[in-house]
Design a binder for these strands. Structure first.
Length: 486
RNA sequence: GGCCCCGUCGUCUAGUGGACUAGGACGCUGCCCUCUCAAGGCAGAGAUCAGGGGUUCGAAUCCCCUCGGGGCUACCA
């Protein structure tokens, strides 16, 4: 087919090959996200979820939400709600999960313990895994020795060759016996061929002494059983991949069709986002500060991916149309508050007044719905985050500090007050008309006339003066103009 | 230390051997608009393409080395 060569594939060859064979017997594309219920949604998890969703939607596949809750120390059932809440806030959805059910459940790893137990038993039976009775102290000692000898640490396999005599009375873990020759390699949709030397891997623990599986065991077991075909996850998992592949192999399960390791998101210090070091790690932090979910989603898409065009603003639907894994960046991306602020401001400005007022209400709990609705138009161009509204409107409840006025300025304020006191219709438009009349009658410039009024009524900075006054209400506005203490 | 990944303006990035005097966006600076602050408009500064060697008529783009950053190296995920 020489004619076909005129359009070279723009994406890497992996998916094309599978699509081609897919015509014969199309295995449905299935991807998954696997957050741990730790009480908050990690920003990286949110982006991984986005990319997975886009990938699945583009190819008519499905997205599975699985809860990786095998860490008894950190995971709590009640934290599950935070996962749903965060993801839903971003308007992200999935097709199967603990909340939705599905044919490949259960979707909480804590409910799949029997499955892992069986899988471990199978590996033990096949001699591709063995029990390890070493205590943490013994292992620690081994590690120390390796360190002292400046040789890379791997478990000694003591329990494989020579288990302790008192093993019956000891707790044990289960370790995968990794082949000590050969390489484990796989092709990554973003990074290409990646190879690891088995001999350097060491025998990883796959079942903890409390009977729970480790991540590197539960994950490949579930991915196989849940028939996950493509794994898109953070780059920090790249080094875990060979172990998971080896687990699938040992179990006699097919490996996933493809992996794609997404570049990590870093903080200003170039380090992976962590709860302790970076407030931006928690998705909910953005919600609290007044970032719009659609702006968040847009920004997240741009962190590590770009459309190849000059477009910066994308809706979720648009992203679904143009997203392309082959355009995902290889290098880590540093989180940038300033660009997010710009994007968020852009989205705020694109809201209708009514919509903005609606979204503002949660951030202005002390103001009436009416006031919030009146304030929306004046606030629109002044907000990078909804959370800033409270400060901008602070003058409503907190009168400004008294400023010293010149005699001239006092006269202007008095004129304004008396003109305003005649007004029956207390709206920005009529206030503006009244002030303009005074100003023109005396031939004062706006700057000269408005500044002292603003100082008396709101302070140094405030929305356009007629809005500032309108929001205050006639009575309070006049009180402040006349300098009467409340 | 070992293994793996990565390296274009401060940041996110375009770029896949010649159209690159390296483009865009955020931020920054200046001007315009203007009642403050914003928003908006216009203009501008900002990158020896990490460094050094090759390959080639020609390299940000291909190869090698070095340096730098990150990830993993847990009975966390």
């Amino acid at each position: 087919m020489p004619g076909c060569s005129s359009s070279p594939p723009l994406t890497s060859s992996g998916p094309h090959i599978s699509t081609y064979y897919g015509r014969v017997s199309a295995p449905p594309l299935r991807v998954r996200i696997a957050p741990s219920p730790t009480g908050y949604v990690h920003l990286g998890t949110a982006r991984t979820a986005l990319f997975n969703l886009l990938f699945a939607r583009q190819r008519g596949g499905s997205l599975v939400l699985r809860l990786d809750d095998t860490d008894l120390e950190r995971n709590r059932p009640e934290y599950e709600a935070a996962v749903y809440e965060g993801l839903h806030w971003l308007n992200l959805s999935w097709d199967e999960g603990p909340d939705l059910g599905g044919a490949r459940g259960p979707y909480r790893q804590s409910e799949r313990l029997d499955t892992y137990k069986q899988a471990a038993a199978q590996l033990l039976e096949a001699k591709s895994a063995y029990r390890c009775y070493c205590t943490r102290e013994e292992l620690q000692a081994e590690r120390k020795v390796a360190e002292r000898q400046k040789v890379p640490y791997r478990y000694s396999r003591r329990c494989l060759q020579d288990p302790p005599a008192d093993y019956r009375s000891r707790d044990f873990t289960v370790r995968l016996q990794v082949p000590d020759i050969g390489f484990t390699s796989f092709s990554d949709l973003i990074r290409g061929e990646v190879q690891f030397e088995n001999a350097l891997l060491g025998d990883p623990v796959i079942v903890k002494s409390n009977g729970y599986p480790t991540y590197n065991f539960a994950s490949p077991v579930d991915d196989a059983l849940m028939e996950v075909t493509h794994i898109l996850r953070g780059d920090e998992h790249l080094s875990n991949t060979p172990i998971q592949l080896l687990v699938a192999d040992a179990l006699g399960r097919p490996r996933p069709q493809a992996f794609a390791h997404l570049p990590v998101i870093t903080g200003k210090d170039r380090k992976k986002l962590s709860k302790r070091l970076h407030p931006e790690t928690r998705l909910s932090y953005f919600q609290q500060r007044g970032y719009l979910p659609e702006a968040m989603l847009n920004y997240l898409a741009l962190l590590g991916w770009n459309p190849g065009t000059e477009q910066e603003v994308f809706s979720l639907a648009e992203l679904t149309g143009v997203f392309d894994l082959s355009r995902v960046q290889h290098a880590a991306a540093m989180f940038d508050w300033e660009k997010l602020d710009w994007l968020n401001g852009h989205y705020i400005r694109s809201l209708s007044d009514a919509e903005l007022a609606q979204r503002l209400r949660a951030y202005l709990p002390n103001l009436s719905e009416t006031v919030v609705r009146q304030a929306a138009p004046a606030l629109k161009d002044r907000l990078a985050r909804l959370g800033q509204a409270e400060e901008l409107l602070g003058y409503l409840t907190q009168p400004p500090a008294r400023t010293e006025l010149t005699a001239d300025q006092e006269r202007m304020v008095a004129k304004a007050a008396s003109a305003l006191s005649e007004l029956n219709d207390w709206t920005p438009a009529s206030i503006e008309l009244a002030l303009e009349a005074v100003r023109q009658a005396h031939e004062w410039s706006r700057g000269r006339f408005f500044s002292p009024i603003r100082w008396c009524v709101a302070g140094k900075v405030s929305p356009p003066l007629h809005h500032t006054l309108a929001l205050l209400g006639k009575e309070e506005a006049l009180r402040r103009l006349r300098g009467v203490p409340a």
